[in-house]
Structure formats: structure tokens, C-alpha cells
Design a binder for these strands. Structure first.
Lengths: 117, 117
DNA sequence: CACCGATATCGTCAAGTATCAATACGGTAT
DNA sequence: ATACCGTATTGATACTTGACGATATCGGTG
């Protein structure tokens, strides 16, 4: 009976969960897909693919930046975005871990509290 | 009575974003990892790995069920959970799509990426 | 039957999030 | 400098979510 009256908030302590969170939105996923399909995309091109206003796009781009999914660079008055190769690689790595039956050997050795044979 | 919406999250129109949303939580990701590490896990084992109460675990398991990540089966008074192979495969497929510079060569016909004019 | 342990659901609260209008900022061209 | 364009930030608002206690439900047991 822990009294957690102050902050029961867990927040996103897991960096991988944070990565998932970055992609767990239709608009952001569309942006990521558009980025994967091209070699750098201008921010001005995202407003076309998603039915949201410009500030919303900018907000999602910020989330993608903060979650490590993309990097950006200013060119003249435009801003270009690229998919972050590291994030994508990390993502694929997690995808590989989440294959049924294919996982850390240690997990199988974990104590089973109740295991009716 | 509260209108019980059939589909969770009206904003989640993209099924893939829904899949990501299912894993975008530290507790749920821990559950998925534990599931990937074993050949079926009893629900009673999840309370040990995550510092949350039983109703919370049950809630997250429900989310994972609704997002297609897991399937469950009752055995006596216990409930066993397995990672859904289809969801894991779909996830790996999307992860492959999100590779920089790879315009979905191995991707299935599902992705709809709108090319900027 | 009554009882008990394991899960799921309900009710509710606090915190996080998506969205847009208005506005500020950064560069370019006139 | 001034006007203009593209992008980011701010502020407000409605909605979504994660958490837990209380309680219901499901199965097995005495």
C-alpha cells in the first residue's frame, strides 16, 4: 500500500516507448512515410498530405524532432526534413525483438509465479 | 449512460497508427517484451514486472487486445496471453517501410503515401 | 451451496494531447 | 527599410488517456 499521493505519474520513462509514441499518430505516421519515400522533404509539402492546419503540422514535426525521428535544416526561408536513420534502425531493432518466440533468452528464465503444468 | 464508442479514438483513422499506439506505453511495451520472451504468459505474471495495480494491467491488456497485439485464452481461473504473430509481422513490415531512402520496395500494397506534386 | 482467488469492468480524477487562430520569428526580395 | 512568405510559438479548448479503488464476474474447491 504505497502512498503515492504526490505524483503517480510514470511518464514516458522508456525511450523506446517514446519512440513509439512519436509514430503513434495518423498525421505523424503520414509524415514519416512521406519522409521515407523521398530524400529530404520541405515542410511546406506536408500540409498537402494531411488535412490539418499549418500550426498542427509544425507541432507534429516538433514531436518527431523531440522523439528523435527526424532532423531538420533551414535552407533559405524553407525548412527541410529528413528521416533519422538511427531512429529508424532502432525501430527495426525493436520490431525484431517483438517477434513471437524470438526474444531475449533471459526472459524465458524469469521466475513464473503461477504455472499450472 | 455513456455512449460506448465502438472504435477507440476517433482520431486514430489509420490502423497502423493504432497499432503503434498500442505499443506506445512503457507498461504495454514491457508486457509485449515479456510476451515475446515466452511461449504464452499468464496474466498473473505481468503484475510482477510492472509497478502498477491489477486493474491497470488488465486495462493495458485490453488495449493490446483491441489493437491486435495479443490474443488470450482462459485456462481454469487463469488467463494466458500470446503475442499475435500477425500484428508482429505487420509491425515489422511497417518498420521496414520507414527506412530512410527506401520508398517501400518490399512494402505491401497497403501504404498510401501521397507524393508531393 | 458458500467461499476464494484470478481477471475484468465501472466510476472517477489528474495529466497529456491534438487542434486551430493569432502572432511572433527568420529570410528574401523589392 | 518595408513588404512578403514560410515556419515556429503561444494561448485556449475539447478530447484522450493512465491510474486506482470498488465491485462484478468467472471457475474451481470445500
Amino acid at each position: 500500500m504505497v502512498v503515492n499521493t504526490i505524483r503517480p505519474m510514470k511518464r514516458m520513462t522508456d525511450p523506446d516507448a517514446l519512440l513509439f509514441h512519436g509514430a503513434a499518430d495518423p498525421t505523424r505516421l503520414a509524415i514519416l512515410r512521406q519522409l521515407a519515400g523521398g530524400d529530404g522533404v520541405c515542410a511546406c509539402d506536408f500540409t498537402a498530405c494531411c488535412a490539418v492546419a499549418q500550426p498542427t503540422i509544425s507541432h507534429h514535426l516538433k514531436v518527431l524532432r523531440e522523439t528523435g525521428w527526424v532532423r531538420s535544416e533551414r535552407r533559405a526561408s524553407f525548412v527541410w526534413y529528413w528521416l533519422n536513420a538511427e531512429a529508424a534502425a532502432r525501430f527495426r531493432s525493436i520490431a525484431g525483438e517483438l517477434t513471437p518466440g524470438v526474444a531475449a533468452p533471459l526472459a524465458r528464465a524469469l521466475p513464473v509465479v503461477q504455472a499450472p503444468a
